[in-house]
Structure formats: structure tokens, C-alpha cells
Design a protein around this nucleic acid. Structure first.
Length: 492
RNA sequence: CGGGGUGUAGCGUAGCCCGGUUAUCGCGCCACGUUUGGGACGUGGAGGCCGCAGGUUCGAAUCCUGCCACCCCGACCA
């Protein structure tokens, strides 16, 4: 099992390098904490993007694009939001370079080219988007406005972590405007559900849907809904969030509309997002020591065929068989690659495809040609069997579904066995130390208790689950009355 | 910004304490040959401002000073 994967990249550098490299572009690197996503890793992101995008459109959303730069005056308009992000902003102050008179061959910032107003590189786009919406919304007939943006954002974190907290990351951010409070709340919950469905159905990653406590809430939101996943090392990961913003942004950016009674009102808002952090989640949910394990629905290549041969004649015959299989699989919508490289031996190819997490591998050699068989190997169980070439394609099609389910069930079993109900603080600390995972415990609802528990144990309240059972109890820390249990965990 | 650690070839490293031939080894890379059912083997080859800048010395990867970068632990973190 791969533990503490992202903070110990050196241990996994071999296969991490297949996906991504940490940026190291210059000696005095300003791009520190960013990442270069290599083609194979990006192909996984594209698969995720495509499915999410389809789900957004099925729920009535459209894509649009807004500027990278946010003028400071706009950024500061919604106070809580600005305050929340102020400490992690990259700021553009100048627009021109010039030759450095004191340092030949070098450039310097032209002191004459100072911007009148600084531009903030978006850490999130609420400000620029709501400023734009102001001009788009006049009547209830313009609502709801359901827009999503695929973009990059920059958050200058003091400490970065590959995939989970990079200084620049790719994400999508949905920003919607509604005529009523209830409609906005419904949208917030709906999009959280979409995220949960994506995580479970495509990533094969079970998640817990819930609501954040006030202290974990998005800056400027009235409520933050989230999906929380559990990684193989027992730490929780916030995999997606959906925010009910109330009328905060509408008031800050003066976005009013005339309702069907002819009265002016501020619109109700939501925002929701998931990022390349999901790739970290995918890796840390399924991978093993041999490398990635990808669920078939997100694998850029679902089946790889490796030829084993001695002579050119054999290679040609095997290639004919392989190309036939490729054609058949593709007609079923299975993505398939025939690895006909002559520069690598079979063993090296096997290892590489395992590293890249290709769900199924077919090997064809002289023995198979003689017997009318192939060797079929599963990435998730690392098992292989020799089966008849006849019926192979059907078998593969069924097996891909089986693997998708098996991965989800394995992850679900792991999570189920790592949710522990505790009644006392001693138990709480003990489970955190020895067993890890989620802890379900009573909490008195105060930020003070939450803070104290965090200081003592480093565990935070991940969420109040949507399906929480109301039951009277007493707080695991303070002993004060509580109406329901909440989920704690150490988190990334 | 505090505490600790590390910088030597694309990657991983030895050498540093105690200065002295042409800077060590493995992986990877290139050429040729033999190979090919789980990361092949042999022979040959390429690749180094030893993090940067000063200093001490006949001589510095090694000693001294300053700087820079990275990693880990904190602080911070929709």
C-alpha cells in the first residue's frame, strides 16, 4: 500500500514521473510549487473533464470564460471573500520589462511601467464573474443563470503539495444566479450530488456528502457542502465543494433583478468546484506499489496488447491478430492500444503498463498462435489467465465493468472499516493514533471545542453528513449536550 | 517567518571530518552484436562551472564567509 504518497514523492518518483513533474524551470524559480502535467497524466485529467462537463450540461449548465486578472478594487468588494484569500494572492504590478543598465544582458522591471491599479491573478473568480453578471441580469426572466468555467487559478500557499495543493492548478468553477433562496440551495445540493456521483461512478471512490462547519466554510459562503474521501493512509481528503453564497455577492456587486411582481431584489448565488486535486485523490485511493491502478472508466487506455515474438514472420502474424482485436474493441467503444514498439522487450512493456495503471493487458505469443489463445492480465488483482481468442472481446468488455465495480467495492470496504464511532475523548485520541480514518463522535456545536480538538489531535471536523441521524448525546470533548454526531479526521 | 536536514551527470549516490593523480558507483542514455512468455546480456562510448559568489592555500567537491534553492516539521490552507 502506498502511504503518505504526496508528501514523499521521492519514494514514488519512478511512477510519479510518468504523470507529472514538479516544475523546476529556473534557479530562482518563481514557478516553485507548480506542476508540469505530462501527456499521460493530462489524458487522465481530460477523461475526468469530459465526464464532468457532460454532467454539468445535463443539469442545464453552459461553459464560458472569464479573465485571469481581477482588478484589486473588484477583488476587495466582497469583504469576507477578499479577506479569506488575501494572504495567498499573486499580484501584477507592472506591464513592461526593459534592459537593465546595471546588468548587461539582463532585464528588469521598467519602473515607469507601473499599473495604476494592481491586478490580482484569480485565486477564484467570484469577483470578476459577479461584476460581469451585474450587466447580464435585469429581470427574473434572465434567471437562473447557470454557468461553468474551466480555468486555472493561482493560490500562493506557503507550503505546496503535489496534486493536492499546488500554487497553480486546473479546475472548474460553477457560478450560478437564482431568483429565490430555495432554488439556490437546491442548486448547491444538486451540484454536490453531481460531484458525489462522479467520484463514485467514475473514479470508483466512495465519498461522504456533508456540510462544513462554520470555521471550515468557504470565505463568503453561508453554507459549504462537500464530498469527503478517505485515502489509503487513513487521511481524509476534501474532494469537492459546493457553496450556497446567499445574497452576499449580489449585494457586494449590486446584482439586482425585477421579480414577477415588479419589485427589485438581489439574486441568490452558488459556486462549486473540483480541481486537479481529484487526480491526487484517484492515485491515493487505488494505487499500489507497482504504480497506478486506474478505474476503466477513466483510463486513457483500457486495454493494451503486447506481442511476444522471435522472428519477423511471427511479429507479422501476431500483428494481424492484434489489429483485429483492436478494431473489434474500438467498435465497442473500448479504448485499446497495440504496443508494437520494437525498442522494448515484453517484460519492460508489462512493467510500464502496470505503472500507468492500464486495467487489462493482452499478451500474444507463438504458443498462443498455435493454440488459438491469449494471455489476459488484470491490473487490479495482478492475476492472469490463458483464454481462448474466440470470445475474447466479449470477455474484455464484461471484465472492464467488473474491474470498475471491484475497485469501488474494495475502496468502500476500506472506508467502512475506517469509520469508528467513539464516545470518549480517550477513545477518540486512541483511534486517531492507532487506527486512523474517520471518527464519528458527538460535538457540542461550538467553534471553541472544534478548535481545541484540532489543537490537541490535529483532527478537524470533515463534515456533518447529509444522512446524519439525530440522536441526543454529549460532546466527546466538552461533555455538553449534542444533537447528532459529526465526522472527524486528520486531513490533507 | 521559526526548528531540523540536504545540494556532486537525466535520476539515485560515494568522497567532505583529516585539502593532493584523470571525482566513485548504480540506473538511465548512445553504437554494435546476441536476445525477446515478467523490467535482457556482452563489448565499446557520451554525459560533470561538485548549488552560486567571494576568501584561505602551491593546490579546494573537501576548510572559512556570504548568498540561493530544495526537503521535512510548525505557522498558513475554498
Amino acid at each position: 500500500m502506498s502511504k503518505n504518497l504526496t508528501s514523499r514523492t521521492e519514494d514514488y518518483s519512478k511512477w510519479y514521473n510518468e504523470l507529472v513533474v514538479k516544475a523546476d524551470l529556473a534557479e530562482n524559480s518563481a514557478v516553485r510549487g507548480c506542476m508540469v502535467i505530462k501527456p499521460y497524466g493530462y489524458a487522465i485529467w481530460e477523461k475526468m473533464q469530459a465526464e464532468l462537463d457532460r454532467m454539468f450540461k445535463e443539469t442545464g449548465h453552459q461553459n464560458a470564460y472569464f479573465p485571469l486578472f481581477v482588478p484589486k478594487s473588484l477583488f476587495e468588494a466582497e469583504e469576507k471573500n477578499a479577506e479569506g484569500f488575501a494572504k495567498e494572492c499573486a499580484i501584477v504590478t507592472h506591464y513592461r520589462l526593459q534592459n537593465d543598465p546595471d546588468n548587461e544582458g539582463k532585464l528588469r522591471v521598467d519602473p515607469e511601467a507601473k499599473l495604476e491599479e494592481e491586478l490580482i491573478v484569480r485565486p477564484t473568480s467570484e469577483a470578476i464573474i459577479w461584476n460581469t453578471y451585474k450587466g447580464w441580469i435585469q429581470s427574473y426572466r434572465d434567471l437562473p443563470l447557470l454557468i461553468n468555467q474551466w480555468a486555472n487559478v493561482v493560490r500562493w500557499e506557503m507550503r505546496t503539495r503535489l496534486f493536492l495543493r499546488t500554487a497553480e492548478f486546473l479546475w472548474q468553477e460553477g457560478h450560478t444566479a437564482h431568483a429565490t433562496k430555495q432554488e439556490a440551495i437546491d442548486e448547491t445540493v444538486q451540484m454536490n450530488d453531481v460531484y458525489a456521483e462522479f467520484a463514485e461512478h467514475f473514479m470508483a471512490m466512495p465519498v461522504i456528502k456533508g456540510v462544513k462547519t462554520e470555521s471550515e466554510r468557504f470565505a463568503g459562503a453561508l453554507d459549504t457542502y462537500c464530498i469527503e474521501a478517505l485515502m489509503q493512509d487513513g487521511k481524509a481528503l476534501q474532494a469537492g465543494t459546493s457553496h450556497f453564497l446567499g445574497q452576499n455577492f449580489a449585494k457586494a456587486f449590486d446584482v439586482k433583478f425585477t421579480n414577477n411582481e415588479g419589485k427589485q431584489d438581489y439574486v441568490w448565488a452558488t459556486s462549486w468546484g473540483v480541481s486537479t486535486r481529484l487526480m491526487g485523490a484517484l492515485i491515493m485511493t487505488h494505487s499500489d506499489d507497482k504504480g497506478l491502478v486506474l478505474p476503466p472508466k477513466l483510463a486513457p487506455i483500457q486495454v493494451v496488447i503486447v506481442p511476444i515474438y522471435k522472428t519477423d514472420d511471427q511479429f507479422e502474424t501476431i500483428s494481424n491478430v492484434a489489429n483485429g482485436i483492436v478494431k473489434e474493441l474500438r467498435s465497442l467503444g473500448v479504448s485499446c492500444k497495440y504496443d508494437h514498439r520494437t525498442t522494448h522487450r515484453p517484460g519492460a512493456k508489462f512493467a510500464q503498463h502496470e505503472l500507468q495503471g492500464v486495467p487489462l493487458r493482452v499478451a500474444i505469443g507463438p504458443k498462443d498462435l498455435a493454440n488459438g489463445t491469449v494471455e489476459l492480465a488484470r491490473r487490479d488483482t495482478l492475476t492472469k489467465e490463458v483464454i481462448a481468442l474466440d470470445g475474447l472481446v466479449k470477455k474484455i468488455d464484461a471484465l472492464l465493468e467488473e474491474i470498475q465495480d471491484a475497485l469501488f467495492n474494495k475502496a468502500l470496504d476500506f472506508r467502512s472499516s475506517h469509520i469508528t464511532e467513539v464516545e470518549t475523548f480517550e477513545e477518540f485520541k486512541d483511534v486517531l493514533e492507532t487506527k486512523t480514518g474517520f471518527i464519528s463522535a458527538h460535538w457540542d456545536g461550538t467553534a471553541e471545542t472544534e478548535q481545541k480538538i484540532k489543537e490537541i489531535t490535529k483532527a478537524t471536523i470533515r463534515c456533518i453528513p447529509m444522512d446524519v441521524v439525530k440522536e441526543a448525546g454529549s460532546c466527546v470533548y466538552s461533555g455538553k449536550p449534542s444533537t447528532n454526531k459529526v465526522l472527524f479526521a486528520k486531513a490533507y
